[in-house]
């Protein structure tokens, strides 16, 4: 029983890792960022490439991936998203295009493939990252064997959630961001530099996705399409939790993780996935604004 609950917790933490960044870009800024999954993918590739060429471990790759994806996010915000605030559906299409561009860029080794140059760690193939010794294996807890790496992911996601909460509620940046979430025009009228705050928030959300990618690389396959299913899961969490609510995202990822884990244990993963979708649909019918919501833009 303990291992089933643990798996549920672990599934929830993986969901939360992806959803945290989305909770900010979608929740706070009203941008449907389809390229979020590609940020996860870029994070994973950062882990692959830094370990291949610089000998970095998984831990050392995390800040690097954060920086890389945050910068990429900043660039996307400045080039594309900035022009589309308030046009929800257009952001969906535009970021989807960006997502495809990023995927193909990785698949074609940023164009080098055209010249017949193959770069180890890039291209259409499958990549992997090896885990450090101390993160592999298991430890015993009340008679159950618990995976060290999954526990590590839970810890990191909790830490990142706490960090994000601190940023949102304990800093002036967070206060300005929350003001923009409630009412962007009013916030601008009060002297908040909305363009700057939005750009930073987008970069931060993308950076979180990069860190998530590094952790995914430790136990999932790394390949150019890996982000696509993740972004769907991320949106499920954010929509169910309530757009713009951090606590909602945390809670809904925990709930969905447990539902997934328990159903998979009793029947199988395919049914579990169907039930997760059913629950999300039910929640949206019952509370169209999600579990936690408040009036915003």
């Amino acid at each position: 029983m303990i291992d089933t609950i643990f798996i549920g917790l672990s599934l929830g933490s993986v969901l939360l890792l992806v959803a945290l960044g989305l909770a900010i870009t979608y929740g706070a800024m009203g941008v449907i960022n389809m390229a979020h999954g590609e940020m996860v993918m870029i994070g994973a590739y950062t882990a692959v490439l830094t370990s291949l060429y610089l000998g970095f471990g998984l831990i050392a790759a995390m800040p690097v991936a954060f920086l890389v994806t945050a910068l990429l996010g900043l660039a996307i915000e400045k080039l594309v998203v900035r022009r589309l605030y308030g046009r929800l559906l257009d952001t969906l299409l535009a970021t989807w295009g960006v997502a495809i561009l990023i995927q193909q860029a990785v698949r074609l080794s940023f164009g080098l493939a055209f010249f017949g140059i193959t770069v180890a760690g890039l291209g259409p193939g499958l990549q992997n990252v090896s885990l450090p010794e101390w993160l592999g294996g298991t430890f015993s807890l009340a008679g159950s064997q618990i995976s060290v790496y999954r526990s590590f992911i839970i810890l990191v996601s909790v830490a990142l959630a706490a960090l994000t909460w601190g940023l949102m509620y304990r800093t002036s940046f967070g206060m300005q961001l929350r003001a923009i979430m409630r009412n962007p025009q009013m916030a601008a009228a009060c002297g908040i530099d909305t363009a700057r705050i939005n750009a930073l928030a987008f970069a931060y959300g993308s950076g979180l996705a990069g860190v998530a990618g590094v952790l995914m690389a430790g136990f999932k396959t790394v390949f150019p399409d890996m982000g696509t299913p993740m972004v769907v899961d991320g949106f499920l969490v954010v929509v169910m939790g309530g757009v713009g609510s951090l606590i909602g995202s945390i809670l809904s990822s925990a709930i969905l993780g447990q539902i997934n884990g328990l159903t998979a244990a009793v029947s199988n993963d395919i049914i579990a996935r169907a039930i997760v979708f059913a629950v999300v649909i039910a929640v949206i019918i019952w509370r169209p604004k999600g579990l936690f919501s408040y009036k915003g833009r």
Binding site: I7, L11, D269
Partner: peptide, 20 residues
Amino acid sequence: DEYLELGHSEWGSMVNKIKS
């Protein structure tokens, strides 16, 4: 006799099931 979707990459539950 268990199945997972093609391309499924979350094996936590299945491996746990194998274990028990």
